Computed example of a mutant assay.
Amino acid sequence: DDDDDDDEIMSSAVKSGGGGGGDETLLAMLKDLRSSMARRLKLQPWVIFTDAALEDMTILYPTTIDGLTHCQNVGEGKAKKFGKEFMELISRYIEENDIVPPDDFVLKSPPNRSYKQRIVNCIDHRHSFDDIAEALDIDMDELLDKIESIVYAGTRLDIDYYIEQEVDEDKVDEIYDYFKEEAESDSIADALKELGPDFTEEEVRLVRIKFLNEVGN
């Protein structure tokens, strides 16, 4: 069923582990590297790799682009853009500590990509999100979930045409600046608390997608 498909292949161990059981020493090193890279690139750390992605790295010990794409919220584009230093750190770490990376993860069958490709095509043709959701027989929340998954994984999606129709320009600027300057994570709840009652969850999610697309991909 398409509704159950993820946009990226993920190991069953990561899915069941929920980020638990990883290498805490390596996690601290990865977070330090992410912070250093964020300062250098003038990005928020979570834009580079989310905490969930780093936690998966401490379980899978990925040292290749393909290995990184088995981590949550990491697609080939993001792995290629930000992954080199992380793979080098992990390679050194497993060598210095005589760690044998797992090679017996049972991967899911490749997911049906029809949702992703249809969404990308529709957005490329500047279709209304309401029309896209109706065509896919899903609600707006589900559509935004899928778009977020696509963008987090590193695929660029220009949704400015829809934001311009749906969100006041001043609101766009304020939400964008929040994620660029203030946000310590990608949390929508934290954003809504900071921005106040004049902003809706959908508005914040739309601008977060725009921000991630422009800054992180």
Rank of each mutant, 00 (worst) to 15 (best):
S185V: 04
E201M: 03
E24Y: 03
L206E: 01
T155L: 11
P62E: 07
G196F: 04
V151K: 03
S149F: 04
I65T: 15
E8C: 14
D145R: 11
K116D: 06
F199V: 01
A13E: 12
R126W: 02
M87C: 14
V120H: 07
T64Q: 08
D145W: 03
L30G: 05
D2N: 07
M140K: 13
K84H: 10
T64C: 10
P102W: 11
D32A: 15
E85A: 14
I9E: 14
Q44S: 08
L107H: 11
D145L: 04
K171N: 09
D177F: 01
S149I: 02
I59A: 10
P197I: 08
G22V: 07
D168R: 09
D104K: 13
V204S: 02
D56L: 13
A79R: 03
D98M: 09
I209F: 01
F179N: 05
D186Q: 06
L33D: 03
E8T: 14
L144N: 02
L68N: 13
F211N: 02
P110Y: 11
T200I: 00
T50V: 05
L33F: 06
S187H: 05
M37Y: 07
L195M: 02
G67Q: 07
W46A: 09
D141P: 00
I132C: 04
K15I: 12
R205E: 11
L195V: 02
F86R: 08
E201N: 00
T25Q: 08
D198I: 00
D170G: 08
R113C: 07
A52D: 15
K42V: 11
T25S: 07
F179P: 02
D141F: 04
I138R: 04
Y162E: 12
M87E: 11
L27A: 08
M140E: 05
A153F: 05
K81D: 01
I119L: 03
M37A: 10
Y178S: 03
D103V: 14
V106P: 00
D4A: 12
R205M: 03
L26P: 02
S128E: 09
G17M: 12
V106L: 14
I65K: 11
D23P: 01
